[in-house]
Design a binder for these strands. Sequence first.
DNA 1: GTCTATACCGTGATAGAC
DNA 2: GTCTATCACGGTATAGAC
Lengths: 215, 215
Amino acid sequence: MSEKPASPKSEKILDAAEKLFALHGYDGVTLRQIATTAGVDVALANYHFGRKLALFSAVFERRAAHLNEARRSALRACQANAGEGGPSVEQIIEAFLRPLELAQETGDAGWQHYLALVAYINNSPYWGQRMMSRLFDELVLEFIDALRQALPGAADRDLFWCYHNLSGALTLTLAQTGRIDTLSQGKCLSSDLQAAYDRMIPFMAAGFREVCMKS
Amino acid sequence: MSEKPASPKSEKILDAAEKLFALHGYDGVTLRQIATTAGVDVALANYHFGRKLALFSAVFERRAAHLNEARRSALRACQANAGEGGPSVEQIIEAFLRPLELAQETGDAGWQHYLALVAYINNSPYWGQRMMSRLFDELVLEFIDALRQALPGAADRDLFWCYHNLSGALTLTLAQTGRIDTLSQGKCLSSDLQAAYDRMIPFMAAGFREVCMKS
DNA sequence: GTCTATACCGTGATAGAC
DNA sequence: GTCTATCACGGTATAGAC
């Protein structure tokens, strides 16, 4: 699972780029800032990764397989535990979300930055279509298949739009913008992922049922 | 409602900036691109608006009052139509969403770009907290008050987190990234806002009820 | 008051010397 | 692997035309 880094410094570069791209977006970050943050020379990023865009892609790809694996095994586990009818909508959504919470609970700040970067990319009219599908569609379609089974008779269009709602709420959560902190005057905190997921799971499950089972 | 433009060309600049900022974000756009798109000289943006950041703010502010007014009167209207108990969760959410649909149906592409820009800002860890609250919190809190009334006994924290889910789904919708087009293999289209809102309203209403009325 | 032409100077990505 | 040079492009100020 853990590929050995090409070099210690190239990992530092990826870490720095991950953090800065997540916060400021692709164009909001310079290679110089990345190099400074990583404590290396400006040209080293170029040496290891080539052009800026390739570095961006490398950051995006670095943790994608890990993430997909964690989600896939959570889905498999809940499918194995479920009876003949398969897992419930709640269980499937939980399998989709909880691995993200765990990733951010490891204390590895890198995961938090990575997920904020995914949020940035997913919500971008420019990058969203360009970069998400290749790495994530296959697994997302597995989840949607599972949901289709849990929601007999659901129309595909309804399923996809419901997934869109889930994806949007999740994206805003991962971005951790701090907006809910202000809006709620401190009653809720962007950084409190457990509170977010605890409510997202029943919320989304009820939404899926309402829209997909109205028949 | 329609303030007269400071000059014909300054409106062109705002239109161009709105479109480009929405697509590429603040740092992804140069003043030269904006000027070229607007068909004016580079220095004119500076003359009318000052620094780049001030132009960005001007774009963000230009349509905010219109949008808030449209939403506020939709809320007032559904409150007036409702009986003693006040409007339902569905009606409140509809009042929150439908004005956006209408704005984009006027054929004015500017509104579409503007709403995509709001999506960009709302989802940005950098701009989200910095720019959303001043213009939008007051009205959002009115909506949350209405929801609190429609969901008796709801805890504030639950209400805010549910609003966060609604806001996230809406944000991804407004960004119109085209991702759902690919994921669904054309069964759903980002540009089909009516399809999105038709499902968002029952979806979100069911989610609010599930989380806020579990008592 | 509105707008254009142009110049300034810092900073960016990237390539080539070491 | 690292240091440094290159050269284009960025935001912005100024001068003056209409």
